[in-house]
């Protein structure tokens, strides 16, 4: 009797071990795993006063001001691998009674232009600043161009400037990075 039980236990044990398997699974699905985070990050900001459009020495107008910053992460192929779309959001608050033209020129390390965006900004007044919102959506082939850039040149152009002009042009901006396949 006991020997039968022993044999039975051993048989069950052996069966369990030798029939152990992994089934109803498909590990090839690992190829389909896609991270699709949507990351919102601040980009650049500035606050230009009317005095920035005048030469401080001789008070002659400076119609276009420019500044440049590196954006090293943009051409980081590891960091931005699987980037599908970028949505830039620019919010201008203008209390200067002048329209503006603002350009965003993305440059590669060799200073070649890889992407360009521009927007007009509506004039406002000191009493009632005007908000202009600009959204630039970059996807498809343009993503490849954008991600070759590692710096951006921001140009702000005023049609006319004088000492009597008052107010400020404020920019807040962010970029939303959509990752996918």
């Amino acid at each position: 009797m006991i020997r039968s039980i022993a044999l039975g236990v051993l048989t069950i044990c052996a069966c369990l071990f030798f029939t152990a398997c992994i089934k109803n699974t498909d590990f090839d699905q690992a190829e389909n795993i896609v991270l699709t985070p949507v990351i919102d990050l601040d980009l650049i900001y500035f606050n230009l006063r009317t005095s920035d459009f005048l030469d401080s020495i001789n008070a002659t107008p400076i119609l276009t001001v420019r500044d440049t910053t590196q954006v090293k992460f943009l051409d980081d192929s590891t960091l931005l691998k699987n980037l599908e779309r970028v949505e830039f959001y620019f919010k201008f608050t203008n209390s200067i009674p002048r329209d503006f033209q603002v350009d965003f020129q993305f440059l590669s390390e060799m200073n070649d232009t890889t992407y360009f965006a521009e927007t007009p900004v509506d004039q406002g007044t000191l009493a009632i600043p005007v908000i202009t919102e600009f959204i630039e959506n970059v996807e498809g082939d343009a993503i490849g161009q954008l991600t070759q850039a590692n710096k951006v040149v921001v140009s702000v152009t005023i049609p006319a400037s004088s000492e009597n002009l008052d107010g400020s042009l404020n920019l807040k901006s962010k970029a939303t990075y959509f990752f996918g396949n």
Binding site: D42, L43, Y45, F46, Q70
Partner: peptide, 23 residues
């Protein structure tokens, strides 16, 4: 706290570089 990159638009002489904001 990260707010992004604050551009100053400095007056620059020819060939002069702006601030290394990112660095």
């Amino acid at each position: 706290t990260l707010d992004g990159i604050n551009l100053i638009f400095p007056s620059l002489a020819d060939g002069e570089s702006t601030f290394p904001y990112y660095t």
